[in-house]
Design a binder for these strands. Structure first.
Lengths: 332, 332
DNA sequence: ATATAGAATGTAACCGCTTACATTTTTTAT
DNA sequence: ATAAAAAATGTAAGCGGTTACATTCTATAT
């Protein structure tokens, strides 16, 4: 592999000049620029990124930590982050934290040890203090889907309370008055917020919150089935179920069907996240769209702004989810 | 940030010795090792990975190119690759090629420019010659899901012909004799092979291949719908459909239902890939399991072996898909 | 005690680039 | 034509490690 030294010799200029045309920093006469470019082409020269990084103290790579690489949610996020960042010539180093505190910390250490210029963190289990401490370090961080009040300008979040609210409101507006709710794990902020929104909508419509009709799941499909079985066993009538994510909604719909209930004729169902498979279900599942892709894009732009000095980028920190109505909701 | 120099001074040893204990290369007395370790701890020293890379001519990062980051297939693959590689302390740099020749080449250039120690390529559009040329370069490559005869030891593939064969065979064994087939784009090798397997199974059972009952889709759900509409409009009776992937199968099932056909009572359906949402469908879709996760793992191990000299790793180059029977197939 | 092999440690030359600063060339003003 | 200012280019000192080789120490054999 040719080095910058050979290029400079062939072009008859100094190292510095070659470096200048590579990074078009500083002024270079068109004539010498052409000489250099020609030499580069002739040698098939490609700068050594490790040397560049070392000398410039900048790796041009940003670390990403997400809970899982598979699953319908994170792929979409990653996709937009990668696009935006690579268009800017940045490398994307990914790690998966599996929602486990130790593993998440491991990943962060790993990324810090990889000389990342910035970190995009989608963590669940690491305590806020850790993040606050981390943010004091030299590496800029962006926090996704996890609101840390002390770091509010570094957080990009979805308004989950609002999501829970509009999901429930959609059902109420369709004339439903007896609603069940299948929640995610109550210790997860996301779950908690969505449920709060649900309750707010109920109150706004002057309806009682019946705690019995709130079942807790794990965000997995099987738990949605269990929750639905439980709700149906209660003998409390309800005409619609709000589910805190789409997987659980899928499970719930199937259980309803097994109990001889037709969706949406006998019971309406709404999910949350609007992941891709919602339209493959039968009936097509109504859901709450989370603008995952946009959030990823903004996260990437934040990095460009904070770590690479790209100004002129506006950052939106909070996203409002929106209702996506399909076939699983019907008017009473 | 502390440097190795400061560590060496604090520990009262030379740079080389510190480097030795860091990489435990060469012999070091336990006593001096402890001194060094203590100094490292005291200073909170963390080696600068860029300097390490430059000096050792090894970046410890491997580049990954996949068609898409989202979608049920690639996430799973990526997930196992990342796990395996990071357990070995390697960084994973990802890029998405979007099945476009120019973009795929771009990505490869980008990864090469990132000083990757090895590349894992899941490409569709780049010509074989390009890959062959690439393989002659200094960076080891692994090719996923794309068989290049000249590079057979670098390819990790799924036996798609066999997959098509067992899918069809499953239906035949359930007593079906009039089968339709919804294929992927015929220019994709995957599609072609799966269809070949289908035809082989048919012949093996002494059945004619009716080309009219073979519809071509694009691997997208909507195209599965279209294909099914087309097949049903033909007025040629068939009792089962083999689909070249799960998305199209989902679409096909829905269209069948809209035409008043019950799955699997009136018509059996089988998909391909066994992506996660197959079990959320109604009825649960039978499919062909592709061991995506295992393939990813093997790809990672290949890299460990070829680029990092880890011997003692056995590599399996071809994977046989397996049948996953669920509720969408019923005996005649 | 002394020579000697072998182990532990140190020395210093890179790795290939960036960049502050010095120098030379060109342009502009007088 | 000449001096001053501005622009282009060159020089060389890092960036923070690794590693071949040289040197010093230790242990063993004589």
């Amino acid at each position: 592999m040719a080095t910058i030294y050979e290029v400079s010799k062939l072009a008859g200029v100094s190292l510095a000049t070659v470096s200048r045309v590579m990074n078009d920093s500083g002024k270079v006469t068109p004539k010498t620029r052409d000489k250099v470019l020609a030499a580069i082409a002739e040698l098939g020269y490609r700068p050594n990124s490790m040397a560049q990084s070392l000398a410039s103290r900048r790796s041009n790579s940003v670390g990403i930590l997400i809970p899982e690489l598979h699953g319908p949610f994170f792929g979409v996020m990653l996709s937009s982050v990668e696009k935006e960042l690579r268009d800017a010539g940045k490398r994307v180093i990914i790690t998966a934290g599996h929602s486990d505190e130790a593993k998440e910390k491991d990943c962060i250490e790993f990324l810090l040890g990889s000389s990342c210029d910035a970190l995009i963190l989608h963590v669940y289990s690491v305590p806020h203090e850790y993040l606050i401490e981390l943010s004091k370090g030299p590496v800029p961080i962006i926090i996704l889907n996890n609101y840390v009040p002390e770091l509010s300008d570094k957080c990009i979040v979805l308004d989950n309370e609002h999501g829970g609210y509009i999901a429930t409101k959609a059902l109420l507006e369709h004339g439903h008055e007896e609603l069940a709710y299948i929640s995610g794990p109550s210790w997860k902020t996301d779950s908690f917020k969505r449920l709060s929104g649900h309750k707010r909508a109920l109150k706004e419509y002057g309806l009682e919150v019946n705690e019995n009709l709130i079942a807790e799941g794990t965000f997995e499909e099987a738990s949605g089935r269990l929750a639905m079985e439980h709700l149906l066993s209660l003998d409390i009538p309800f005409t619609a179920v709000v589910c805190a994510n789409d997987e659980m909604a899928a499970g719930a719909m199937d259980v309803a069907r097994k109990h001889g209930l037709r969706v949406p004729d006998d019971i309406s169902v709404i999910g949350y996240d609007n992941v891709s498979f919602t339209r493959y279900l039968h009936p097509k599942l109504s859901s709450i769209g989370c603008r995952i892709s946009e959030m990823g894009q903004v996260a990437a732009r934040c990095v460009l702004k904070n770590a690479y000095g790209q100004t002129d980028l506006e950052i939106q920190n909070t996203f409002k989810p929106r209702l996506v109505l399909r076939d699983s909701v019907k008017s009473r």
